[in-house]
Computed example of a mutant assay.
Amino acid sequence: MQAHSLFLILCAIVTGAAVPFQAGANAALGRTLGHPLWATLMSLAISMACVLPLLLIARVELPTLSSLSHAPRWIWIGGIVGAFYVTGAILVAPRLGAAGFVTAVIAGQMIASVAIYHGGLIGFPQRAMTLQRLAGLLLIFGGLVVMQAQTFSSRTGLE
């Protein structure tokens, strides 16, 4: 594996490591504000407040609105999915726990990723479902079952 690929994998791992912190902080924010949708709004507003100074520091030019008229309609789902994810994390992470939540999120991400590749959707190249990918999905689901079996048994006293 090339050094550049290893660096990208490390970046993805660090990005993924932030997810349980985000889920826990947003869940606490939801409890503090009294509703998960207020926490979603605040979280996304804070995200915007963090990105705006970076745009100014990097002197990124404003996009042209004409470029949007030629873009596919599905490009807008990123913001919708972001709000959906943050709200889902606020509601679900405290109930599943950090590890259970992240494991389930990874399982969902992998199912969607394989489906996206298989269909060549949203700008990704088409890649057929293979036995290796299916085996990877099954291993992830096995991990999810093991993680949640422990959580379930500890909550019900079935250890």
Rank of each mutant, 00 (worst) to 15 (best):
P63V: 10
L52I: 14
V60K: 10
V60S: 08
S67E: 15
E61M: 09
L52V: 15
P53K: 10
A58H: 03
T87P: 07
I75A: 04
R59Y: 03
G79Y: 08
L52K: 06
I57E: 07
L54I: 12
I57K: 14
L68F: 15
L55R: 02
L65R: 01
L65Q: 01
A83N: 08
T64D: 13
E61V: 06
G78W: 02
L52E: 10
L54M: 12
F84K: 05
L65S: 00
R73A: 14
V60F: 09
V60Y: 11
V81P: 03
I57F: 07
A58S: 15
G82S: 10
R59Q: 12
T64K: 15
L68E: 07
L56P: 00
L62D: 04
A71S: 14
Y85C: 09
L56S: 02
I75E: 09
I80Q: 05
S69A: 15
A58N: 09
V81R: 01
F84N: 11
A83L: 04
V81Y: 08
L56K: 12
V86K: 03
A71K: 03
I77S: 06
V51F: 14
A58D: 13
G79V: 03
S69M: 14
T87E: 03
R73W: 14
L62Y: 04
I57Q: 15
G82K: 06
V51D: 01
I57D: 05
L54Y: 06
T87A: 15
P63C: 06
W76L: 11
G82Q: 02
I57A: 14
W76S: 10
I77Y: 15
L65M: 10
L65K: 01
S69W: 09
R73F: 12
G79R: 03
I77R: 04
P72Q: 05
L65F: 05
V51Q: 06
L52S: 10
R59P: 04
T64V: 02
T87I: 09
P53D: 09
A83R: 06
